[in-house]
Amino acid sequence: MVKKLSLPLTKEDIKTLKAGDSVTLTGELYTARDAAHKRFYDMVQNGEKLPFDVKNQTIYYVGPAPAKKGYAVGPAGPTSSYRMDKFTPMLLNMGLSAMIGKGKRNDDVIEAIKENGAVYFAAIGGAAALISKSIVKDEPVCFEDLGTEAVHKYTVVDFPCIVAIDSYGNDVYKR
């Protein structure tokens, strides 16, 4: 059975999720991958405010292809999450509640997910054309100079993913 969830997720929603569950997400989320994470990290180290409040938000690790005319976004599948591991505990401690990517996370991230009652979803890598059909609106947020790595706000409808690491630290990749 597929669970339908709305974004932003509530702490109660997150508690009901178990690693391996199929879910769909509807609402708003932010995109950010390697270069944007590095900037977030540097900004926090320098005592600066982030361009958007990550509290209770969802970040999707994606660098989309350009959109053809008439499309809300171009193909937009997940990128490998482990490259964001270095920066993730900091964001989780700041209140980030969910991440969407693909592949394994390290122990520090799993620990921070547990401590903060957060969740890590996996989308299907390489299903970018299909996934883009569930993204209906795209607004630029910041770091436009980063091109495909810029931060955007997506409105998603029935965005398909799987609970990869739940708030109890269960990891679908370790089963």
Partner: peptide
């Protein structure tokens, strides 16, 4: 979908 709409199979 990629073939029909001639869009990229993967964003990468």
């Amino acid at each position: 979908i990629a073939k029909k709409e001639q869009i990229a199979i993967c964003q990468d």
